[in-house]
Amino acid sequence: MQTPPTYFEKSQYIETLNGNKVSKSSILCGIMNIRLHGKTIIKPGVIVRGDLATVNIGRLSIVSENTVIRPSSKKFKGSIVYFPQNIGDHVFIGEGCVISAASIGSQVYIGKNCIISKRCILKDCCIIEDGTILPPDTVVPPFTYYSGVPGVYKEDLPDCTDVFQKDYTTSLYESFLPNIPKPSTSGSPIKPVTIS
């Protein structure tokens, strides 16, 4: 089945020249350090902690509602050092995740309510199932499916995952359209989360 397009209120989103769509109810801390490479959607309630370290998010990536993106840290000579965080192209991050990975490759799918702990490295083309908790320093190799608490290798992915994921995120971006044609399809507004 083709996914029906989702519509958003135009006044609630900021659209940049290179196609980024950032919700006004998302919280981007340290906006100077956050770089979106274009055609990225940031949904309401997302927190990006750019004040800790630089955050790079690649093209055609989608960050869903209420996810926290927070650069990872390490104690080094008594003080805490934050590492810059890189998220690749065609990455889908589900709702309610906490992402503190050191780097996330391209064509990665992260399900709902996942916790990607400090200094994890997610390589290209991998899938993290809904509700997975990846312990610190985990490496997820390409073409693998990780799930469980703690997240462990479950099985391989089909070889065409990268093509599929590219197609998937592109279609999600293209079906994320401004303005609401019918009042019935409007989604319920999501409460923004505030940092305590």
Binding site: G105, Q107, K123, D124, C125, P141, P142, F143, D159, C160, D162, V163, F164
Partner: peptide, 13 residues
Amino acid sequence: PGKTEFKRQHFAY
């Protein structure tokens, strides 16, 4: 192992 490119790829997809 870190790369995802293929030298030969004939996916039905």
